[in-house]
Simulated scan of single mutants.
Amino acid sequence: MNQEIQALKQNKTWEVVDLPPGVKPIGCKWVFRIKRKPDGTIDKYKARLVCKHTKSLYGLKQASRQRKKEFTNQISGYGFVQSSHDHCLFVYTHDEVLMALVIYVDDILLTGNSEGHMVQVKQFLHDKFAIKDLGNAKYFLDLEIDRTTSSIHLTQHKYIWSIVVDLYLENATAAHSPLSSDWTSKDPNSPLLEEASLYRKLVGRLLYLNFTRPDITYSVHHLSQFMQAPTVSHYNVALHIVKYIKGTPHHGLFYSADNNLTLQAYCDADWPKYPIIRRSVSGYCVFLGTSLVSWKSKK
């Protein structure tokens, strides 16, 4: 808690001002969390001082937004350009130097083709915000990064296992495919799921797996279309997908260092397979050499 307070003061997270007449301050509370390494061992104990958001009013400018704007201005001043496609991505290009910086709240991922320039960027950020350099990326937002001199392998093994445990499926038999061959979009005899929030939460967690698991993209895309009124059948299909990823936890994306820059794209469509929606579902995947870099399933 003391470390968190000192970090907030050092980064000048707030300014102490007089309270306007007739206004009551919003309270705050401590939130404690245990951060773990990819293997499950304890990395560190984390304390956060947060605003009680249930007491805040819509429309008031929050300090976090101001802080994000300040960070963006500093990065832009260094020469990084914010992506118009993903506002969390900043790219720096100069001569033959290329660097990419990704931000999520207070987590930052930096990569590039110049070690010297990256050291300068980290020092620049440290001077402005007192950052902590955690070294080569191994775990970032539930993405596990296994890097060698010849390749990079991205998986979400720990994240998958957390889903399995939360659903009490540790001893369930693993499924051999994301969907069974006889599955249809709607079972007319299946009743509505009483707790639809369970379904929405599970599908949301499966959607996050799409970052490293293109093999479930088609299946999860179908399930995401029934968020408003899911049935028991839909929920059982979602559980089937969980049983599938339980048996394939180490599947992910593999990027070889020995690769070429040949761009290849593939696409396909099911041509109104399901009579209920009467629309096609198309999908595509794009490879740079042997590395899968983009994919999607869409109605």
Rank of each mutant, 00 (worst) to 15 (best):
T149D: 13
T149R: 09
S150T: 12
S150M: 15
S151L: 08
I152H: 04
I152R: 03
H153E: 05
L154D: 02
T155R: 02
Q156T: 02
Q156P: 02
Q156R: 05
Q156F: 01
Q156N: 14
K158I: 00
W161P: 00
S162Y: 14
S162C: 14
S162G: 13
S162M: 14
V164F: 03
D166F: 10
D166S: 11
L167M: 13
L167Q: 15
L167G: 03
Y168P: 00
E170N: 13
T173K: 08
T173G: 11
A174Y: 02
A175T: 04
H176T: 08
S177W: 08
S177E: 12
S177L: 01
S177Q: 10
L179F: 08
L179K: 02
L179Y: 04
L179W: 02
S180E: 14
S180I: 06
S181K: 05
S181V: 02
S181E: 10
T184D: 05
T184S: 00
S185M: 15
K186D: 07
K186W: 05
D187E: 12
D187W: 01
D187S: 04
P188N: 08
N189D: 06
S190Q: 10
S190H: 13
S190A: 12
P191T: 01
L193D: 04
L193A: 11
L193T: 12
L193R: 06
L193M: 11
E194C: 03
E194F: 11
E194P: 00
E195G: 02
E195L: 04
E195P: 00
A196I: 05
